[in-house]
């Protein structure tokens, strides 16, 4: 099957899934009686509606090609960093460092993907960014909470720019026998991560009893994690035909992706709580902020990228 056909099949599959979700939400809405049930269903329907929009944006960017995809993810980094720093206490003396992060580091990091300059892409933020930004803050001579401020800013940049940029970076991998199809790999990664989130939510809502980390993330349950994790791994395995992986390899990659996605959700939930918030923002109706949707992606993407690069790329 050529790339174009695969893409059509995938889009058709996702649209079918969303149709099923929309119809299910509508039917549940007809049957619900209680006040709290109504709230859950309204949130479910808002989530599904937001999914239609997100899938549409993603599909259009993919069809437009590599440049559009890179630009789309640079905006995702921009909006997630904006959410992260909105909740993070910083001081006026961090102003220049923060401006630099938004207006220099995001464009450069994504430009490097466009240039396919892997060596600089992989060290630009951890080396140059992490040394230059605190220097700028220090020059402002404000030692109050200096270490905490630097740590928070760097962690935010790490997650929102560096980690998330590893999704479109899949486009620069040179995989033998797979040239011109890297966009499918990007689709695959996001599909597995997001299906894992969705299925964990669904299994958790239906069977969830035993909480994994009630203090940090009250919605995560053992039942949800197992059901969602197994489900998403099976979906990932069954989609091996759009990847450079064999069936078993695809199952392994999907499993690691699910695991990392779970950890991402857990860690960012802890970060959120330490900042005193429940959601990262209000940008995506029903989901919260952009970061609420990208938390698992930010952890899964770099690992997925490096495993693929090490084992499959030249």
């Amino acid at each position: 099957m050529i790339m174009h056909d695969k893409f059509l099949w995938l889009t058709g599959g996702v649209v079918t899934l969303l149709l099923i979700a929309s119809i299910t939400g509508w039917l549940l809405g007809l049957r619900v009686k209680t006040e709290s049930g109504r709230a859950v269903i309204d949130n479910l329907n808002a989530r599904v509606r937001a999914w239609w929009v997100m899938v549409a944006i993603f599909a259009v960017a993919s069809l437009l090609g590599k440049l559009a995809t890179i630009i789309m993810f640079s905006f995702i980094s921009f909006f997630t960093l904006r959410e992260f720093l909105t909740l993070t206490p910083t001081r006026a003396s961090d102003h220049r460092a923060l401006s630099l992060a938004f207006f220099i580091f995001i464009p450069v990091q994504y430009y490097l993907i466009g240039l396919e300059w892997y060596a600089l892409f992989s060290i630009f933020i951890p080396v140059y960014g992490f040394l230059l930004l605190p220097s700028l803050s220090a020059l402002n001579q404000d030692p109050e909470h200096f270490l905490e401020r630097c740590a928070k800013i760097q962690w935010g940049i790490m997650l929102t720019i560096y980690c998330i940029s590893h999704v479109p970076a899949l486009l620069l991998l040179d995989i033998p026998g797979y040239s011109g199809q890297n966009a499918l790999l990007l689709f695959y990664l996001l599909l597995v991560v997001q299906m894992s989130d969705v299925l964990q939510y669904v299994f958790g809502k239906i069977f969830g009893k035993t909480k994994i980390a009630p203090v940090v993330s009250p919605s995560k349950t053992v039942e949800g994690f197992i059901g969602g994790g197994v489900g998403a791994t099976l979906i990932g395995a069954s989609m091996w035909w759009i990847t450079p992986f064999t069936l078993l390899q695809a199952a392994g990659m999907a499993f690691v992706t699910v695991l990392m996605g779970f950890l991402g959700g857990l860690v960012l939930s802890a970060v959120k709580r330490s900042l005193g918030a429940k959601d990262w923002g209000t940008m995506i109706e029903g989901h919260g902020g952009m970061m609420d949707r990208m938390d698992s992606v930010s952890f899964a993407a770099p690992i997925f990228f490096h495993l693929t690069r090490y084992f499959f790329a030249v």
Binding site: R82, A92, H95, R96, S99, F102
Partner: peptide, 15 residues
């Protein structure tokens, strides 16, 4: 007041 305090030229995007 965090986005563009008095005396700065470039804004920091915050919600």
């Amino acid at each position: 007041h965090r986005c563009m305090p008095k005396g700065t030229f470039f804004p920091v995007p915050l919600i």
